[in-house]
Design a protein around this nucleic acid. Structure first.
Lengths: 160, 160
DNA sequence: AAACACATTGACGCCGACGTGAAGTTTGGG
DNA sequence: CCCAAACTTCACGTCGGCGTCAATGTGTTT
């Protein structure tokens, strides 16, 4: 299989594949006499893998470290141990980001809800303006995005 | 307050503040005769806001759009409507990423568990190698990272 | 008025993950 | 044999979010 086919099958581009090769992530199984890269199915699997790893923001350098763990480890237990250490680091990072995104999601959802209420009342958003609004007052804390909205609303000139 | 103080209070740098100004995100309330930027507390709040928004990967361009929504909207309901549309877009993106990260987390956790088992057995990881391993065989699907591990393990030469 | 920290503009650099040419070479079908 | 399509390497461009340097100007203290 040549690079164009591989790119199509993997849903990526030739440029990307060559870039990965430059980084030492994948390599063609062989070359034609003329120098064309020739690939096996294995590279296709690797590419798909890289793609899915990228969904989790895993940088290519770490993907490489992951791929390289094969060479360094000798015994199976070493391999398993080394890999699981790598993955635990990764897991910690993923969980950090998860927490951040969950917080963002909560803030966004709450803020949207409040805004819908304000839009219904035709009021400038903000707790001083709409002090009896249950959507705002029943909340333990003002969500992140709502704080921004309130600041923004202070610049406007409209009936309160 | 001059730019250095603002930077310290906001936990950022002068360069960053000037960069934000260049992007139209924040502006000094005034300047000294000599040209030094002078800021009020409001800018500090804005900076803190930007920082927290960045935790959710919100690009600065969108933060700007968010800030600019003030000028475009005239009536309060327009403002609230426009903002909530912005935030809904943001929310959708955040939720997409949340799903991806959740999948990554699950895959990582499962893979680490499997690897621990393999390390305990001193076996090369992979379902053919350890066919009776309940940790592997009881799973509905092989997690993402485990697929990578299996590919990697195939290059090793060790007692199965 | 000298010393010193603090600021100013401008410009170039960097990282990651590629895109986008340009100029030449190889392959495969008719 | 010839031609278009596919491929090669080289090298510069992009985007976001700043870092860092250079040369110069300001504010404050003594």
């Amino acid at each position: 299989m040549r690079i164009g086919d591989l790119a199509r099958k993997a849903g990526t581009t030739m440029r990307t594949i060559r870039y990965y090769e430059q980084l030492g992530l994948i390599a063609p199984a062989a070359r034609t006499r003329g120098g064309f890269r020739l690939y096996e199915e294995e590279e296709l699997r690797k590419l798909r893998l890289i793609k899915s790893l990228q969904l989790g923001q895993t940088p290519l350098a770490r993907v490489k470290a992951f791929f390289e763990a094969r060479r360094r480890g000798k015994a199976a237990s070493e391999i398993a141990g080394g890999l699981s250490r790598l993955l635990e680091t990764e897991l910690r990072e993923v969980e950090e980001r998860l927490a951040q995104f969950r917080a963002m999601q909560a803030s966004l959802q709450e803020t949207i809800e409040i805004l819908r209420c304000c839009a219904g009342c035709s009021l400038k958003p903000g707790p001083e303006v709409c002090p009896r609004c249950p959507v705002i007052t029943s909340r333990p804390a003002i969500p992140l995005h709502m704080q921004a909205v309130i600041e923004l609303a202070e610049g406007t000139s409209l009936p309160g």
